[in-house]
Each structure stands twice: as C-alpha cells, then as structure tokens.
Design a protein around this nucleic acid. Structure first.
Lengths: 343, 343
DNA sequence: AAATTCATGCAAAGCGCTTTGGATTTACTG
DNA sequence: CAGTAAATCCAAAGCGCTTTGCATGAATTT
C-alpha cells in the first residue's frame, strides 16, 4: 500500500492525503480524520526511502565508533550510551546507523557519509587530543555532537562530557585524605582526551597535597580486565607498592581487585581502589544496593540520551551557538577504600 | 555533485555513467575508466537515498535489540556481536541500523520495519522459547537470521547458535569429574531460549552422574555482576553450600567470585567456577594469556560475522533452504576449577 | 449583490538514481 | 559490399514521496 493507492481508495489527491498525514493546516479536520483512519486501517506507512529523497532529510543519525586497529576493542560503554541515545531517536522517528570504522580511514569515511547523505548528523565517539575530525566535520557542514571533548581546538562545537579532571582530582584526593601517599593511576589510552584529563586531575590532586608524581605508578592502556590485573600485579609486587589505585573503568578495576585479592590482600583494608563508574546496566554499583566500589560515577546512558537531544536540536537548528553540556559526576563511597594501613 | 552534473561534465548520458560506475557490461572499458576517474576526481558518491528508492533495496540491515522492560538491561554481548557483523556489512556496502525495542511492542515494530522499507533484512536478538517473532517475520517476508534459536518452532528458519546444551553438560561434567557433588547453576532469564538450553545441559550432566537436581541450587535472572554475587552469597551462606558453580556469563561469574573471596574462600581451591565465556574484547580469557576462568568459550564476535554473512546470503537468495549454523564451543581449563575440597 | 477572503483540494514538478527499450555506430561474416 | 550481429550509448519512465503554485467553491465583508 502506497500513497497513490491510499489516495485513490479515498478519492482524494496524493497531496491532500500527504498533507493530512503530516499535519499541514491546509486540510480540514474532518478530512484529516478520515485519512488517518484509512491509513491506519490499510496499515499504511510512508516509505522512508521515498520520503527522505523528497525531503532531503535522512531521518537517521550516525554513530561512528572508532575501532582501535591493534586491539579491535569495543569500548563497553558504547552499549549503554547507544541504548540511551536510541530511546530519544525512536521517540523522534529517527533511525540510528552504526558504523565501526578503523581509526586509520576515518576522514574519508566522514566525507562519504556527508556525500551519500544517509545521515542527518553524527555522534563522534572517542575524541582524541586535538582531534582532526572536528575541523573536518565543521568544514563538511555535517551536524555533530562529540561524546567527550577534544582539547586544544579553537572552533566552537557541541559536546557532552563529564568533568574528568575534577573527577579524578576528587577520586585521588579522597584517597589522600584517607592517608594514602603512594597512589597509582591505571588509566585508559592517553591519546584519548578523557584519559588525558583524568591524568591531569590525578596529578593535580597529588601536587596539591605535595606528593611526588611518580611515572612508575602511572599506567595507560586499553581498558580491559586483564590490563587492570597485570598493571596492579606488577606494581604490587615491587618493593614499594602503592596503597591506592585510581582506575579509569569498572572493568579494569575488577582486574585490579583480582590482583589484590590474589596476593592475599583485602581490598579496602590493605589496598584501596577508586574507579570511574559509567553506571553500566549490567554492572550497577550502588544504584540498587550499597555500592561496592568507591567511585566517581556518571551515567553514560544519561549521557547518550542527552547527546541525542543535543544532536537533534543541532540538526533542526544548524546555526544556533555551540552547546556544551557537562554531566554530573559524584563521588560515592563504597567498600573498596579505607584508611591507609599502618605498618 | 550528482549524477546529472557528472554526466554533463563528461558529455555522456546519465545512463552510461551509471552503468559505467556499476559495472554493467554495456559500456566500453575505455569509457568506464574515464568515468571512474572523473567520479573520483569530483568526489562523486551516489546518493544512498536515491539509489535505494530506485533499486528497491535499502542496502541496510536492521538489528533489533530487545530491551527488557523491567531492567532496561543491555546485554554486554551485543557490542561484540555488532562489531563482528559490522565488519561484514561495511565490506559489502551495507549500513547497520540499530533499534532498541521494548519487548512489549515488538510485533508492530517488525511490521513497520517491513512497510517502511528501510532495511533489507534483520538480525533477531535474544530469541525466547517458541518466539512468536519468527512466524511473524516469515509471514511478512522480511529476511532474517536469528542469533540464537527458538525451540518448539516447526518452521524452518536461519539461525546461528552455540551448542548450549552440550556446553553446559560439558561444564557441569567437568566439575563432576573433579569430584563435585553440589553444583549450582547461575543462569540467565529462563524464558530466553539459550538459558533454557543451558539448564537442560546442566540437568543432563547431573542426571547422568546420578546426582539430584536441586531447585535450591538453581537461579535464573538478568546476568549482572550483582546477581552473580547475590545468588552465590546466598547459597554459600547456607548449611550445605555448593562447591561448584556453573555460570552463564563472565560478568555474572565475576560476581560469583566476589562472593567467594569475600567469604575468605579461594576460588579454584575451595569453590570452583565454570562460566560461559563469549570472548568479549575487553574481557579476554585465555586468548592472549593463560585463561583465568575455566570456561566453555565461543566468540560472539565470530558469531556476529557469521550471522551477517548468512543474512546477506538470505537477502540475495530469499528462496534458498534454511541455513543453520552451529558455532564451535570449547572447554578451556583455567584456574577457577579444582578438585572438590575434602572435609 | 459584488468584492474579498479563506478553506480546501488538485495537478505537476521535483528529489537523484536505476533500468527499459531503442537508436546509432562499429565490427564481422559470406 | 550488402547483411547481420555486437558494441555502445541515449531518452525517458519510473521508484514513492513532498511541495509549489493554482483552481475552485464557500464564507465573509462592504
């Protein structure tokens, strides 16, 4: 059933039927109601393809997920971010198009995306320091919102981020206040902007407390469970092990805990952990029960919702001034931190 | 730059240019080469919208991800599955459209998908027992591949699955052979087909060994970390605790381990765990280093790749006989299992 | 009653591509 | 060299929708 058939069945022109269905004022309420009923009865849905060709709007948003070439790692936060964004899209009648792109050939990919015109806008994931994508997208005129931020960029652009510096300052300071002096940082890959900021926050807290920044205590890699385990194990097995860990993700923190427990130590008593917690749906920490990990927490799902709204606004209004959203990020105290042990 | 402009610039008709670019034989190699070069130089890409309207093919595959209404839980395996599938799609020029749908209004959703025509086929995720979606999709004539399987359905349909029964039989038998007699099952939600099968495998192994099937040792819920912890804790705190756990996902198994260690017990010595392991990229178990968890393992990313290929085949050839693919699933021995402790 | 506005509906022109059916040119046969 | 087949290209008709520009008749005003 298409428009033509429906309009013939109704004895109306395609124009009128189309207008009736799309809420244009040039059609009487009586006709509109009649058309609506007929459409419902005939199970009529306008073809997305035809519609978007005619309107020039794709009614779709692209999510471009960079896949790090070495590891082929998919960041576990994407699932929840996308779930959040998807809620908004489907409420607004937008499709979500997902593309996983090797970080090597991203530039071409964006260019093609614009030309092929199958999306109205995109969400940029995993921004790096001074990320070149931002200038490119601006130049292409393809609406976008960055999930995260890219430092050292002059252009104004839309982004939504968590206060990473503050968060890791807070996390580190919390341990400092508990008496910890040797605090390790188990960070993500530091050409990613968020990781860089977390490191800055960590360093700021140490400096404020007059503590030395020790490169031997700072690690940076893809945030897997194994990485957390390995990094923690190596540091714990030295002569002068850290008593606290600031960790960039729950998954990695689980690995850290594994290393701690394996050494016969007790997390929270012998060694403390504060982690960043994206509030992943299958790994809730304190949302339904008492928190396990002491953590700086911010819901990535909420971020997804918010980012989607920002992008749809941008699509609707390309010339509005750039919007910058900062998510809330609170320290929640769980069982993985405690006063530094005396010895 | 569109077809018309390009063809005018070349002094050729749109037909010829289109044919040249799409590899039709009616155009000389010389012309084709000339056209190709011009297209490249002008950065020409055919509009996806227009093309799919003309051809009737959307060049897009839909992934419909059911979101359980209570928990709003996104199964962490989707990320990797989609990463695998995405590789294939992009190699074949297909887009991937993701939709998260509340399991309540799925039927309508599929119907609309077909009518609106924005996908050529879909992957069905999270099949339940006797899942009604399969009959519906057959009836709609929308090509699909099921990730998993739905029991009790007579119709032939394409699916890719892991041998869940065998896998959990094997996992359970492994512990039985180590002397365990009280083995708990920490399963997913059992109206999902895969969970039901895993339970069958578990029960089969127990029965074969002449062990009693004890409902008190069988739990079923959304596979979160907290669920694993809670279920294990409750059972371990009884008078007659299990000495082994068969667990349906790594995430949940992490929770089980947490409960074990918290009780001052050592995993693998005092209590054993065998888990199902989807080989998630951020939680590798034995792929790069010695395995931590004893597990029945099957790469969900590979499954994604394979499912995508199956679906594209189906789209190309709607009347081929139904294809059923069974993934490999091997038991890998890690450190979380050991002989039952004597006491 | 004539002049003006408003409400309602229509025909037709795109949107940018693919593809059908034909026309024209070139190459090949006997 | 005429006659046929093959190669090469083109004009134009869709695909299913939105939207522009008009036409019609009803309602309102003077």
């Amino acid at each position: 059933m298409n428009l033509k058939q429906l309009s013939e069945a109704l004895g109306l022109s395609q124009t009128t039927v189309s207008r009736a269905l799309n809420g244009y004022p040039e059609v009487s309420e009586k006709t509109r109601e009649k058309v609506r009923k007929a459409a419902l009865a005939a199970n009529y849905q306008p073809s997305k393809r035809a519609r978007s060709l005619a309107t020039g709007r794709a009614m779709a948003i692209g999510h471009v997920i960079p896949v790090s070439t070495q590891q082929e790692l998919v960041n576990p936060v994407f699932g929840d971010f996308i779930a959040g964004a998807g809620e908004i899209y489907s409420a607004e009648g937008y499709d979500m198009i997902l593309s996983l792109v090797k970080d090597s050939d991203e530039a071409d990919f964006y260019r093609d995306l614009k030309i092929k015109g199958n999306v109205d806008g995109i969400i940029v994931h995993g921004p790096r320091m001074a990320d070149p994508r931002i200038a490119l997208l601006k130049e292409l005129g393809l609406p976008f919102v960055v999930h995260g931020r890219a430092s050292d960029i002059d252009l104004p652009y839309d982004f939504i981020d968590v206060p990473n510096i503050t968060a890791f300052d807070q996390a580190t300071t919390h341990m400092i206040e508990l008496g910890h002096r040797r605090i390790a940082l188990i960070n993500g890959v530091e050409d990613l902007d968020f990781a860089c900021r977390r490191r800055k926050g960590y360093e700021r807290a140490l400096s404020r407390a007059g503590l030395r920044i020790d490169p031997a205590l700072m690690h940076s890699s893809d945030m897997t469970e194994a990485y957390g385990y390995n990094a923690a194990r190596d540091m714990l097995d030295t002569d002068n092990p850290p008593t606290g860990f600031a960790v960039a993700s729950m998954i990695t923190a689980l690995g850290v805990r594994r290393a701690i427990e394996e050494r016969g130590l007790k997390t929270g008593r012998d060694v403390s952990i504060v982690t960043f917690d994206d509030d992943l749906s299958y790994m809730r920490n304190g949302t339904q029960e008492a928190p396990i990990f002491t953590a700086v927490q911010s819901s990535v799902r909420d971020a997804g919702r918010h980012a989607a709204r920002m992008l749809l606004d941008r699509v609707a209004n390309p010339n509005a001034p750039a919007a910058e959203t900062m998510m809330d990020c609170g320290l929640i105290i769980g069982e993985t931190t405690g006063p530094v042990p005396k010895n």
